[in-house]
């Protein structure tokens, strides 16, 4: 098994916490993993991305090659489009549908949706709304992870275990809320995939 994932979003949205759960699950599975992160600028609001590679064989490059990413997970719709050069022909794009508008020339959302519509394999969902429904806006990342979970190549229950381990320090209530968030995201993806 081998999955190459590009995570994208806007600085401060917390793409790295998604990577942390996947990494935790991958490591427990005994998989190899490489994850190139973006650090540095502590101010908020610029575009950020991370390359996450997991495989049952050793991984050479820290960066994913063009046209080879199995999955793009994005917390922001325009940011999801920025990495399309990297998406495989049959790869999946899973993105938050709610724009984060902090630049004056942000494109019209209809145009973004039009571009997303051209892709054969995609899941779009409003993670903030779903996160609020299951308990907290803070779980938005985990809703996103849930929506991407069918494409990661790691069993769903292993990802649940990853969440339990990562959030265990914060108490059972937080763990349960995040498990619900994961489930809610997963349901959306599952329905779209079935269509």
């Amino acid at each position: 098994m081998k999955t190459d994932i590009i995570l994208s979003g806007v600085g401060g949205q917390g793409i790295l916490s998604i990577a942390a759960v996947i990494g935790e699950a991958a490591l427990k599975e005994g998989l190899f993993m490489k994850q190139a992160e973006v650090h540095g600028m502590s101010q908020r609001g610029g575009d950020v991305q991370s390359n996450l590679r997991i495989s049952d064989k050793p991984i050479a490059s820290d960066l994913i090659a063009k046209g080879k990413a199995d999955l793009i997970i994005s917390l922001e719709p325009m940011e999801s489009l920025r990495y399309l050069l990297y998406l495989k022909e049959d790869g999946w794009l899973v993105t938050n549908s709610r724009p984060f508008i902090n630049i004056p020339n942000y494109p019209e959302i209809e145009k973004i949706n039009e571009e997303l519509g051209k892709l054969p394999n995609k899941v779009t969902l409003d993670v903030e709304t779903i996160a609020k429904e299951v308990g907290s806006l803070r779980a938005a990342n985990i809703v996103m992870l849930g929506a991407a979970s069918p494409f990661i190549g790691i069993d769903y229950d292993k990802i649940e275990d990853g969440i339990r381990r990562i959030f265990s320090k914060k108490g059972d209530e937080i763990v349960q809320m995040n498990l619900n968030a994961l489930k809610a995201g997963y349901e959306v993806a599952n329905q779209i995939q079935k269509k």
Binding site: V10, G45, G46, M78, I103, Y106, E115
Partner: peptide, 9 residues
């Protein structure tokens, strides 16, 4: 349509 998104204060 994808625009640059520079960091800001």
């Amino acid at each position: 349509i994808v625009e640059q998104r520079p960091p800001a204060l």
